[in-house]
Structures are given as structure tokens and as C-alpha cells.
Design a protein around this nucleic acid. Structure first.
Length: 302
RNA sequence: GGUGCCAUAGCUCAGUUGGUAGAGCAACGGACUGAAAAUCCGUGUGUCCCUAGUUCGAUUCUUGGUGGCACCA
């Protein structure tokens, strides 16, 4: 059976370099599991692999979308599952690397079958939310899907709205479409997690933000500023600089805010990853130990 | 040097007519099934600057310090 090796970890932990080395040893391309590196216009702020790094190892799902393109975890699942059989023709083991929790989950465990939401329906509900607040939409959900109404976080407008959308699209209660089950995949999955002590991680994150600024993040943000309403730009590193452009912060405060939000994001990632018992954890410097683990426990030829 | 004001959570500050205190931000913990770098939820013990007094009881009033700010010399 073929194998999907997943290397994951919080932002700034040092995934890129380690993954390049391991991919070279395995002669495998890298499937990037990163919801923002997908976008062509955001290479600096998302710390996307550089042209030179992509020369070393071919990457999928990096820099291939326009900011206005719709994408989702489910789309990612579909795309990766379609791509893997092709890659498995030449590679027994394929590496997927990234930090987007839900994207990784979608590939490893699958997401329930749900309709793609009609753009106008979402717009209508969002407008209603803005004008009248969440209360009427909540009430709608109580009628359409009382079960889910009692489970959902009623203050989380995205969850409430999405449930209503699905009910309206399908004519069925959203909760009836949630199977709560894991999809069986046609390949083995090995999960390696990368961690660092918090002090060490925070230092790296802070330093990396400074490096991004030196590399031209400000200009990158300015170039995409006209599209700031797009979901792709609701992203750490951009939204703070947009606030700076609008005079809400001075530049230094904006940079501090980027560091802070990156730290918070890294913690949210760890909160998610920590509860996954399938992950075996290593420090990014422990490349030899990781290879040994892959050889001895999983019988990967590396 | 003199006078006045201030000193409370990591930061900015509120408050206690004397019964040991609470907001915002930060920090930390958590949730997460087609927007996920999104979205949402939860957590507040801190020598109330120090000292001596008054008092059953002082962070609160009084004395004397220390530090900061402002004004006058």
C-alpha cells in the first residue's frame, strides 16, 4: 500500500527546510497543505517556498490561485485525492507538509458530502446578518434544524449561517448530513508533528516577521490592498498592514500586531494538533531521528 | 529648593462614603466537518509604593519617606 507522510506543525516552527530534505531523500514531491500559500500574490507574507526551493523539490498547491478564486478545505480534499494516484505511479511515499489544520484533516479523514453554497444565498444571509444581526438567522436555524441549533455555538455567525445555507440548499437538516465518520483511504497515513518550546518558537516567529518586512511584505500588501475584502486577504500579515494603510496603526504597531497574531495563530494550531493521537512529535532539528522513526516503525526506505 | 497632583493586574486606568478590588488591552486555556492564517468561547490574588499612627478593621483617613509628573524659584 502507498503512504502519505504528513509533516505538520505551527507557523514558524521550521517545516520548510526539513521537508525539503526529507522529500529529497524520498524522491517525492511536496503537497503543500497551506490555505494561504495557495495564492499567487502572497509569497512573502505566507512564507511560501521560493523558486529555488521549488526547483529542489516540486510543490503542488503553491501559488496557483488568484485572490478572487474560491477555495475550501473540501476542494483541497478533492484535489489531493485526485492527484495522489498519479503521484503513486512513481512514488510509493508522498509527502504532504503544512499547517492548515482543517486542510490536513480533510485529506486524512474526509469531510461530509455537502452542497457548494450558492454565492447569492451566502450574500443574502450575510447582508441579513449585517443589517439585522444573527438573531433572525438563529431563529431560522431553530426551525430548519432544531438538533443542530442545540449543538452549535450560537454566537459563531459563520457556523450558524453555514448550517442555514446547507439546510436551504438541500431541503434537509444540516445535522442529518453530518456523518461523524472518518473516510477510509486507499493509502497509509503517517503523521509527524514538529514542535519547539514556546520561547524558541516565539523568537523565530518575531524574527521571521522582521525578515518578511525586509523582503518587501509592505509592498506586497500594498499591491493587494485594492482587493482587501476578499477572504484570501483575511490573513495575518496583510490585515494588520491594511490597518496601517488606513491610519489605524503606525507602521511599528502594525508589525508588532503581525507578530502577536502570528503567535496566537501558532497556539491555535497547537491546540488543534495536540488532541490528535496519531501524531508523533519531533523537534525540527531531529531529522536523523525522524528518518529512523520512519524506517523502524513504518518501514519506509529512507 | 518650594508647591501641587499621582502611585491599584504585564500595560492603560476605574473603584472602595474604612469591611483586602474590577474594566479594556495583553497573556493563557478551549472549540472547530465545504470561508479555517477564518470564526467563536472561557480564565482576573494583585505585597492596592514603603513606613508609622488612628481604628475592632486601612488599599481607602493622618504622619513621615521613596519614585514619577507639572508649575514656581
Amino acid at each position: 500500500m502507498n503512504t502519505l507522510l504528513v509533516i505538520l506543525g505551527p507557523t514558524g516552527v521550521g517545516k520548510t527546510e526539513l521537508c525539503l530534505n526529507i522529500a529529497e531523500k524520498l524522491y517525492t514531491p511536496i503537497i503543500s497543505a497551506d490555505s494561504r500559500q495557495l495564492y499567487k500574490a502572497l509569497p512573502i507574507g505566507t512564507a511560501a517556498p521560493t523558486a529555488a526551493q521549488q526547483q529542489r523539490v516540486p510543490h503542488y498547491f503553491v501559488g496557483q490561485l488568484e485572490l478572487s478564486d474560491y477555495y475550501s478545505a473540501s476542494q483541497f480534499e478533492e484535489d489531493v485525492i485526485a492527484l495522489l494516484p498519479w503521484l503513486y505511479q512513481d512514488h510509493a511515499t508522498v509527502l504532504m507538509a503544512g499547517g492548515s489544520m482543517m486542510y490536513i484533516d480533510a485529506v486524512c479523514n474526509g469531510i461530509d458530502e455537502l452542497p457548494t453554497i450558492d454565492e447569492n444565498l451566502r450574500k443574502d444571509l450575510l447582508r441579513q446578518y449585517k443589517e439585522e444581526g444573527l438573531e433572525p438567522i438563529r431563529n431560522q436555524l431553530r426551525l430548519l434544524d432544531p438538533d443542530f441549533y442545540h449543538q452549535v455555538d450560537l454566537k459563531n455567525y459563520k457556523r450558524v449561517i453555514h448550517a442555514v445555507e446547507v439546510c436551504l440548499m438541500t431541503g434537509k437538516p444540516y445535522s442529518s448530513l453530518r456523518t461523524n465518520s472518518k473516510k477510509q483511504r486507499e493509502f497509509n497515513i503517517i503523521k509527524i508533528g514538529l514542535f519547539r518550546d514556546r520561547d524558541e518558537l516565539y523568537k523565530r516567529i518575531n524574527l521571521r516577521v522582521d525578515q518578511m518586512m525586509e523582503a518587501g511584505l509592505l509592498e506586497e500588501a500594498r499591491n493587494v490592498y485594492p482587493f482587501k475584502g476578499l477572504n484570501a486577504l483575511n490573513t495575518v500579515g496583510y490585515k494588520e498592514l491594511f490597518s496601517y494603510f488606513e491610519g489605524e496603526y503606525d507602521l511599528n504597531s502594525a508589525i508588532e500586531k503581525i507578530k502577536q497574531n502570528s503567535r496566537i495563530y501558532s497556539r491555535k494550531q497547537m491546540t488543534w494538533f495536540k488532541r490528535d493521537p496519531e501524531i508523533t512529535w519531533f523537534h525540527p532539528a531531529e531529522e536523523a531521528k525522524i528518518c529512523e522513526h520512519l524506517r523502524n516503525i513504518h518501514h519506509i526506505g529512507i
